[in-house]
Amino acid sequence: MDYHYPAGTVRALLQTDDVTEATRQTLTERLEKPRRQPTFFQPDEAELLTCIIDRLLPQDNPAGRIDIVGVIDERLTGNQSDGWRYDSMPADRDAYRLGLKATDESAVALYGAPFCELPTEQQDEVLNAIQAGTPPGITWQQVPADRFFEELFAETVGAYYSHPLGQEEIGYVGMADVPTWQRTKLNDLEAREPRPIN
Protein backbone atom coordinates (compact mmCIF):
# COMPACT_ATOMS: atom_id res chain seq x y z
CA MET A 1 0.00 0.00 0.00
CA ASP A 2 1.09 3.55 -0.67
CA TYR A 3 -0.51 6.02 1.73
CA HIS A 4 -0.83 9.76 1.23
CA TYR A 5 -2.00 12.36 3.69
CA PRO A 6 -3.41 15.85 3.21
CA ALA A 7 -1.02 18.81 3.41
CA GLY A 8 -1.20 21.41 6.14
CA THR A 9 -2.26 19.17 9.06
CA VAL A 10 0.62 19.85 11.43
CA ARG A 11 0.78 23.52 10.51
CA ALA A 12 -2.92 23.86 11.32
CA LEU A 13 -2.59 22.04 14.65
CA LEU A 14 0.26 24.35 15.67
CA GLN A 15 -2.30 27.19 15.62
CA THR A 16 -4.54 25.41 18.13
CA ASP A 17 -4.52 24.63 21.85
CA ASP A 18 -4.08 20.95 21.04
CA VAL A 19 -0.31 21.48 21.35
CA THR A 20 1.53 22.77 24.41
CA GLU A 21 3.33 26.09 24.29
CA ALA A 22 6.69 24.29 24.41
CA THR A 23 5.74 22.11 21.45
CA ARG A 24 4.40 25.06 19.44
CA GLN A 25 7.56 27.06 19.98
CA THR A 26 9.92 24.24 19.05
CA LEU A 27 8.08 23.18 15.90
CA THR A 28 7.25 26.69 14.71
CA GLU A 29 10.87 27.71 15.01
CA ARG A 30 11.91 24.70 12.95
CA LEU A 31 9.23 25.39 10.35
CA GLU A 32 10.15 29.02 9.91
CA LYS A 33 13.89 28.68 10.07
CA PRO A 34 15.51 30.33 7.03
CA ARG A 35 17.90 28.33 4.89
CA ARG A 36 21.31 28.26 6.54
CA GLN A 37 24.45 29.59 4.90
CA PRO A 38 26.86 26.75 5.65
CA THR A 39 29.74 27.64 7.93
CA PHE A 40 31.32 24.22 8.38
CA PHE A 41 31.05 22.96 4.81
CA GLN A 42 32.89 24.71 1.99
CA PRO A 43 30.56 25.79 -0.85
CA ASP A 44 31.60 22.86 -3.06
CA GLU A 45 31.11 20.42 -0.18
CA ALA A 46 27.66 21.81 0.56
CA GLU A 47 26.72 21.48 -3.09
CA LEU A 48 27.89 17.88 -3.25
CA LEU A 49 26.10 17.01 0.00
CA THR A 50 22.92 18.56 -1.40
CA CYS A 51 23.20 16.41 -4.54
CA ILE A 52 23.64 13.27 -2.43
CA ILE A 53 20.80 14.06 -0.04
CA ASP A 54 18.48 14.87 -2.94
CA ARG A 55 18.88 11.25 -4.05
CA LEU A 56 18.65 9.78 -0.54
CA LEU A 57 15.38 11.61 0.18
CA PRO A 58 14.07 13.38 -2.92
CA GLN A 59 12.08 16.50 -2.04
CA ASP A 60 9.05 17.58 -4.06
CA ASN A 61 6.86 19.29 -1.48
CA PRO A 62 5.35 22.48 -3.00
CA ALA A 63 5.13 23.93 0.54
CA GLY A 64 8.90 24.19 0.73
CA ARG A 65 12.24 22.45 1.07
CA ILE A 66 13.58 21.04 4.30
CA ASP A 67 17.13 22.32 4.81
CA ILE A 68 18.83 19.05 5.75
CA VAL A 69 22.31 20.26 4.83
CA GLY A 70 21.71 23.22 7.16
CA VAL A 71 20.86 20.93 10.07
CA ILE A 72 24.03 18.88 9.56
CA ASP A 73 26.16 21.97 9.05
CA GLU A 74 24.86 23.54 12.25
CA ARG A 75 25.67 20.42 14.26
CA LEU A 76 29.17 20.09 12.84
CA THR A 77 29.85 23.80 13.29
CA GLY A 78 29.03 23.39 16.98
CA ASN A 79 30.96 20.11 17.07
CA GLN A 80 27.95 18.48 18.75
CA SER A 81 27.78 14.75 19.27
CA ASP A 82 24.79 12.46 19.57
CA GLY A 83 26.53 10.56 22.34
CA TRP A 84 28.45 7.93 20.41
CA ARG A 85 30.19 7.01 17.22
CA TYR A 86 31.43 3.83 15.64
CA ASP A 87 34.99 3.26 16.78
CA SER A 88 35.84 2.37 13.18
CA MET A 89 34.84 5.86 12.05
CA PRO A 90 36.90 9.05 12.28
CA ALA A 91 35.46 11.96 14.30
CA ASP A 92 32.21 13.30 12.78
CA ARG A 93 33.72 16.38 11.11
CA ASP A 94 36.49 14.38 9.49
CA ALA A 95 34.05 11.63 8.53
CA TYR A 96 31.87 14.07 6.59
CA ARG A 97 34.82 15.78 4.87
CA LEU A 98 36.42 12.48 3.92
CA GLY A 99 33.15 10.81 2.91
CA LEU A 100 32.26 13.66 0.56
CA LYS A 101 35.69 13.63 -1.03
CA ALA A 102 35.52 9.87 -1.42
CA THR A 103 32.05 10.02 -2.97
CA ASP A 104 33.37 12.22 -5.76
CA GLU A 105 36.33 9.86 -6.21
CA SER A 106 33.92 6.97 -6.66
CA ALA A 107 31.82 8.96 -9.12
CA VAL A 108 34.88 9.76 -11.20
CA ALA A 109 36.22 6.21 -11.02
CA LEU A 110 32.89 4.67 -12.04
CA TYR A 111 31.48 7.20 -14.49
CA GLY A 112 34.22 9.71 -15.24
CA ALA A 113 32.66 12.82 -13.70
CA PRO A 114 32.01 14.33 -10.25
CA PHE A 115 28.84 13.16 -8.50
CA CYS A 116 26.72 16.26 -9.09
CA GLU A 117 27.34 16.14 -12.83
CA LEU A 118 26.13 12.57 -13.26
CA PRO A 119 22.61 11.66 -14.42
CA THR A 120 20.47 10.47 -11.49
CA GLU A 121 20.65 6.77 -12.47
CA GLN A 122 24.44 6.87 -12.23
CA GLN A 123 24.30 8.85 -9.01
CA ASP A 124 22.13 6.09 -7.58
CA GLU A 125 24.62 3.44 -8.67
CA VAL A 126 27.39 5.32 -6.87
CA LEU A 127 25.25 5.47 -3.73
CA ASN A 128 24.43 1.76 -4.01
CA ALA A 129 28.14 0.99 -4.09
CA ILE A 130 28.76 3.17 -1.04
CA GLN A 131 25.88 1.58 0.85
CA ALA A 132 27.21 -1.89 0.02
CA GLY A 133 30.66 -0.86 1.27
CA THR A 134 32.34 -1.57 -2.07
CA PRO A 135 32.94 1.77 -3.80
CA PRO A 136 36.22 2.52 -5.61
CA GLY A 137 38.36 5.38 -4.27
CA ILE A 138 41.44 5.59 -2.09
CA THR A 139 39.88 7.90 0.52
CA TRP A 140 37.42 5.17 1.58
CA GLN A 141 40.36 3.56 3.34
CA GLN A 142 40.06 6.34 5.92
CA VAL A 143 36.29 6.16 6.34
CA PRO A 144 34.33 2.89 6.01
CA ALA A 145 31.84 3.51 3.19
CA ASP A 146 28.92 1.49 4.56
CA ARG A 147 29.12 3.20 7.96
CA PHE A 148 29.41 6.60 6.27
CA PHE A 149 26.26 5.84 4.30
CA GLU A 150 24.43 4.65 7.42
CA GLU A 151 25.37 7.67 9.52
CA LEU A 152 24.64 10.18 6.76
CA PHE A 153 21.30 8.61 5.92
CA ALA A 154 20.20 8.33 9.57
CA GLU A 155 21.02 12.00 10.13
CA THR A 156 19.23 12.95 6.90
CA VAL A 157 16.12 11.05 7.92
CA GLY A 158 16.19 12.61 11.39
CA ALA A 159 16.30 16.12 9.95
CA TYR A 160 13.56 15.42 7.42
CA TYR A 161 10.99 13.67 9.60
CA SER A 162 11.42 15.90 12.63
CA HIS A 163 10.30 18.77 10.41
CA PRO A 164 6.58 19.60 10.38
CA LEU A 165 6.46 19.23 6.58
CA GLY A 166 8.00 15.76 6.78
CA GLN A 167 5.57 14.85 9.55
CA GLU A 168 2.60 15.98 7.48
CA GLU A 169 3.73 13.65 4.71
CA ILE A 170 3.46 10.59 6.94
CA GLY A 171 0.26 11.68 8.68
CA TYR A 172 1.89 12.10 12.10
CA VAL A 173 0.10 14.37 14.57
CA GLY A 174 1.37 12.96 17.86
CA MET A 175 2.50 16.43 18.91
CA ALA A 176 -1.18 17.39 19.40
CA ASP A 177 -1.34 15.72 22.79
CA VAL A 178 -3.01 18.30 25.03
CA PRO A 179 -6.50 16.76 24.79
CA THR A 180 -4.90 13.33 25.54
CA TRP A 181 -5.56 10.31 23.33
CA GLN A 182 -8.61 8.34 24.34
CA ARG A 183 -8.98 6.23 21.18
CA THR A 184 -5.93 4.03 21.34
CA LYS A 185 -7.18 0.89 19.62
CA LEU A 186 -6.94 -0.32 16.03
CA ASN A 187 -8.86 1.70 13.42
CA ASP A 188 -10.07 4.09 16.09
CA LEU A 189 -9.16 7.64 15.17
CA GLU A 190 -9.77 10.92 16.90
CA ALA A 191 -11.10 13.86 14.89
CA ARG A 192 -7.71 15.57 14.76
CA GLU A 193 -5.95 12.56 13.19
CA PRO A 194 -5.70 12.90 9.40
CA ARG A 195 -7.28 10.20 7.21
CA PRO A 196 -5.24 8.96 4.26
CA ILE A 197 -6.24 10.24 0.82
CA ASN A 198 -5.66 7.58 -1.79
Binding site: D82, W84, R85
Partner: peptide, 30 residues
Protein backbone atom coordinates in the same frame (compact mmCIF):
# COMPACT_ATOMS: atom_id res chain seq x y z
CA UNK B 1 9.41 19.21 27.42
CA UNK B 2 8.05 19.79 23.91
CA UNK B 3 6.43 16.77 22.29
CA UNK B 4 9.27 16.62 19.83
CA UNK B 5 11.99 14.00 19.67
CA UNK B 6 14.75 16.35 18.54
CA UNK B 7 13.72 18.98 21.08
CA UNK B 8 14.11 16.33 23.78
CA UNK B 9 17.66 15.45 22.82
CA UNK B 10 18.65 17.22 26.02
CA UNK B 11 17.60 14.17 28.05
CA UNK B 12 20.45 12.07 26.66
CA UNK B 13 24.03 11.71 27.76
CA UNK B 14 25.59 13.14 24.60
CA UNK B 15 29.28 13.24 25.54
CA UNK B 16 30.75 11.03 22.85
CA UNK B 17 31.50 7.38 23.56
CA UNK B 18 33.31 5.09 21.15
CA UNK B 19 31.41 1.94 20.21
CA UNK B 20 33.67 -0.94 19.23
CA UNK B 21 33.34 -4.67 18.59
CA UNK B 22 31.35 -6.63 16.01
CA UNK B 23 28.03 -5.40 17.42
CA UNK B 24 28.81 -1.84 18.52
CA UNK B 25 26.28 -0.56 21.08
CA UNK B 26 24.79 2.85 20.28
CA UNK B 27 24.63 5.34 23.17
CA UNK B 28 22.95 8.76 23.42
CA UNK B 29 19.23 8.39 22.77
CA UNK B 30 19.59 4.63 22.69
Amino acid sequence: FPTDEVGQDKLFWNDERLSAGTDPVPFGSN
